[in-house]
């Protein structure tokens, strides 16, 4: 990635999109709106109850803001993977294989849905609101945590996206399954994991490392102990978890492409 190929590919996509300006603006707004709606749901719930899974309204909004921002960035970067089934069906994926670049970055750069920026913007605004409405002990470390958390979360979500979409190499029609995992992990991470229980929590929090997108960093930022008894350092290791998730995603992708070239269409 050292050279300027990918920025060029991305810039080319942006130029392409700008030819539909009105539609672009509407979709951008729609995305911001969609993100805001989820916030409204949380606020409506808290108009009826005082705490959810042991967390107050402003605390849940903070988790939601972390999750939403991270998901928005991931959607911007990895959302194009949703087109993968189409690429496979139409043979566009074969064209990517005929170029001297890796297939994963090519798919990811094949379209940058800048309209998703609306979602990121809404997430960041909510984050600013939540940070000022919670009691946070500010220090260089907590500032760093605030900056790093959405980025690490974005990497985790992107990894989830890659793994979920790689399933398309086997099941071309099963895009909704991938959506369930990606959007599902977004919904999951928007609430404290204490709300969930059993295998659902174990799976979504640790197998899909959703707990590291917002929950543990949020606890560290709020200076709260984990009601579930997790050690405090969990709040600080999201970047490591993200790195591990990215490695797993890379391996899964390689395996999937190898399967595709081995089995073909």
């Amino acid at each position: 990635m050292g050279d300027r190929i990918y920025p060029k590919l991305v810039a080319a996509r942006l130029r392409g999109q700008m030819s539909y300006r009105v539609s672009f603006a509407l979709e951008c707004l729609g995305q911001a709106f969609a993100q805001a709606i989820e916030l409204v749901v949380i606020l409506v719930v808290f108009s009826r109850v005082d705490a959810l899974g042991g967390f107050s309204a402003s605390e849940v909004v903070l988790l939601y803001a972390f999750a939403g921002t991270a998901f928005g960035i991931a959607d911007l970067v990895a959302g194009q993977l949703n087109e993968l089934p189409d690429y496979i069906r139409t043979g566009k994926f074969d064209v990517l294989l005929l170029r001297p670049l890796g297939t994963l970055p090519q798919v990811m750069a094949s379209d940058v849905r800048l309209r998703r920026a609306g979602r990121v913007a809404a997430g960041i605004i909510t984050m600013a609101f939540a940070l000022t409405h919670n009691d946070i002990a500010w220090s260089p470390w907590t500032v760093l945590l605030v900056v790093v958390t959405p980025l690490a979360g974005a990497v985790i979500f992107s990894a989830v996206w890659i793994v979920a979409c790689a399933v398309s190499f086997w099941l071309v029609e099963a895009q909704e399954l991938a959506n369930a995992v990606t959007h599902g992990s977004n919904s999951f991470t928007s609430y404290p994991i204490t709300v969930y229980s059993g295998w659902l929590r174990r799976f979504m929090a640790f197998v899909v490392p959703g707990a590291f997108v917002a929950y543990y960093p949020g606890l560290a930022l709020l200076g709260r102990a984990d009601p579930l008894g997790g050690p405090a350092f969990l709040g600080w290791i999201a970047p490591l978890v993200a790195l591990a998730a990215a490695c797993v995603a890379g391996l899964v992708w390689r395996f999937a492409v190898r399967h595709y070239r081995g089995t073909g269409s």
Partner: peptide, 18 residues
């Protein structure tokens, strides 16, 4: 690239193949 001028596609390929 479907929605770009032909020339831009060539330019991108130039970058891809260095």
């Amino acid at each position: 690239w479907w929605d770009l001028p032909l020339r831009d596609s060539f330019d991108l390929l130039r970058a891809i193949y260095r």
